[in-house]
């Protein structure tokens, strides 16, 4: 049920128009961070205020919304944002990736390949990939203007010099359509290949930093690397202990105080679907029926 005290999807129409204009420019300049007049939302910065504003600007009453937090539908951030739009927009919600038309995500891309007609909205803490290398906004803006991305390669090179490999495991920088270097938000680098050639529209909202960027469908998105140290999408070298999947991104869960651990899919919908199809992992309950 919609809370009638609010406009549809919480934000007022003028704010939505402002965000919508920024979204169209973001799509027209793939990977470029468009400044926008980010509003205070009824949740703290760092809880997805940017993603929530982008979702609010995109939602229609007919949408089915899915919200994930590190792949999971049932964690605090996901549940609270899903409830927020249930109340303020009255939209249907779902946990199934294939049924959703809009998916707001914190730091994962669903395992299930996305399709045309779907929109993936990322929550972004720090949109500027060069920020930890150069703290001044005036300088990073100039570096983007001049395509001066040598510093990022130096950072990756230092990884190799120190660790023998590129140790950056999340928020791994990408180059979009051969022009802008973009931070894909702190998704594991395992998800980076899914950014490229994706049929869905990918929108990124950073509330505190007041930036929106986007990757249009079927875009060319290349993870930065070196010829002799090519990019590799890595994950824990295990199978899921609940569904047996060998190809999905895994969370490591400590299960007692003697170092026993289990590995489970980070994407809860993917794992549950596989279990429903009868797939079993090492720690699945014995004799349990799907």
């Amino acid at each position: 049920m919609t809370d009638q005290a609010y406009n549809f999807a919480y934000l007022d129409e003028q704010t939505k128009r402002m965000i919508r204009r920024a979204l169209l420019k973001a799509l027209a300049i793939p990977g470029y961070q468009v400044p926008f007049a980010s509003r205070e939302m009824p949740m703290p910065y760092g809880w997805g205020t940017g993603g929530v504003q982008v979702t609010a600007a995109c939602l229609t009453p007919e949408d089915r919304l899915k919200v994930i937090d590190q792949g999971a539908d049932d964690t605090t951030n996901a549940v609270s944002i899903r409830r927020f739009f249930q109340r303020t927009a009255g939209v249907e919600t779902t946990e199934r990736t294939t049924d959703a038309t809009v998916i707001q995500t914190r730091h994962r891309i669903p395992e299930q390949p996305l399709a045309e007609g779907q929109i993936l909205v990322y929550q972004v803490p720090i949109p500027e990939p060069l920020r930890f290398l150069e703290p001044r906004e005036t300088e990073t803006r100039k570096m983007h203007e001049l395509e001066e991305y040598g510093l990022m390669h130096v950072k990756l090179y230092e990884d190799i010099a120190r660790h023998g490999e590129i140790a950056t495991a999340y928020a791994y920088p990408v180059r979009v359509e051969g022009r802008y270097v973009m931070d894909p938000s702190p998704i594991p680098k395992f998800d980076n290949p899914k950014l490229a050639g994706n049929p869905a529209i990918q929108l990124f909202g950073a509330g505190r930093e007041a930036r929106i960027h986007a990757v249009p469908p079927y875009s060319d998105v290349v993870s930065l690397d070196f010829e002799d140290h090519p990019f590799a999408a890595s994950k824990a070298d295990h199978e899921c202990d609940l569904c047996g999947s060998a190809g999905s991104y895994l969370d490591e869960v400590i299960t007692d105080d003697r170092g026993t651990r289990m590995f489970v899919c980070s994407d809860t919908d993917f794992c549950a679907s596989r279990q429903a199809q009868g797939h079993r992992g090492r720690l699945s309950p014995q004799g349990a029926t799907p």
Binding site: F8, A9, E13, L24, A57, C58, T60, I119, A214
Partner: peptide, 20 residues
């Protein structure tokens, strides 16, 4: 009905800009 009509219109514009 500005909020829902503009939402539908924007989705068409968003899809159009995303898929030239």
């Amino acid at each position: 009905d500005p909020s829902t009509q503009s939402a539908h219109a924007f989705r068409a514009l968003l899809e159009a800009m995303a898929r030239p």
